[in-house]
Design a protein around this nucleic acid. Structure first.
Length: 233
DNA sequence: AGCACA
């Protein structure tokens, strides 16, 4: 059964019904945070033009990651709007570039690359671009553990988690998006005067522990593995 | 609703 609107599986997912008020950079960061749990993200494309606002493309390194994302994040409430997710209709440029199959489209006519005449053995030159992958590296589903810095793991379990090493631009919405999938999630609290940290509350300390294990070391950006400990009582 | 690659 092909519920995804009859579009065949693709490494790239197409998301629509996104909140158009969110600035492009924040949107990309949040999408990255949200979707990197399904696998390695190679690129995210979002434009704010009249035609393209409210939509985004997330390029995964594996089709299976895209499939899981399409299924599991379907209708996920994101900035107060349910995401509508499909497979992308075409192959992303960043993948074609990695392939060596990338053919630059001419700026004039946007849509005349249907003509794939087999004119002799005219292969695209797989030269410089073949290695031009910009694969940002996140850890994937169970990312590398960046162990908490100074004070260690020996804090008593608590239903409240203490998150450190967040990028300063992190918003509580971004964290909510990450943590709310874990049972018992209550709320995220951030302190304006203290960027880079947050508190995330669960109903009990078993549930908070599950979330901590799952998201320990999670990278919102490649430079920012989350350091999660129990909050002090 | 809207499928791009600034």
């Amino acid at each position: 059964m092909m519920l995804s609107g009859d579009i065949p599986p693709n490494q790239t997912i197409y998301i629509k019904n996104l909140n158009e008020k969110i600035k492009k950079e924040e949107l990309k960061r949040s999408l990255y945070a949200l979707f990197s749990q399904y696998g390695r993200i190679l690129d995210i494309v979002a434009l704010k033009t009249a035609k393209l606002r409210g939509q985004a493309w997330v390029v995964f390194s594996e089709v299976t990651a895209a499939s899981n994302a399409v299924r599991q994040m379907q209708n996920f409430p994101f900035y107060d709007k349910p995401m509508r997710i499909q497979y992308a209709k075409t192959k992303s440029d960043c993948l074609a570039k990695a392939d060596g199959t990338y053919i630059p489209r001419d700026k004039k006519k946007k849509q005349e690359e249907k003509a794939d005449r087999k004119r002799r053995g005219e292969e695209p030159q797989r030269s410089a671009t073949a290695n031009g992958t910009t694969s940002d590296v996140n850890g994937g589903p169970n990312a590398s553990f960046g162990k908490p810095s100074a004070q260690e793991s020996a804090a008593a379990p608590n239903n409240i988690l203490f998150i450190q090493n967040l990028p300063h631009e992190t918003t509580s919405m971004m964290l909510q998006v990450l943590f709310q999938r874990y049972p018992g999630f209550r709320e995220v609290r951030m302190i304006e005067a203290k960027p880079g940290i947050a508190f995330v509350e669960f109903e009990d300390d078993v549930q908070s522990s599950v979330a901590m294990q799952a998201l320990q070391g999670f990278k919102i950006t490649p430079q920012n593995p989350m350091a999660i400990t129990y909050a002090k009582k």
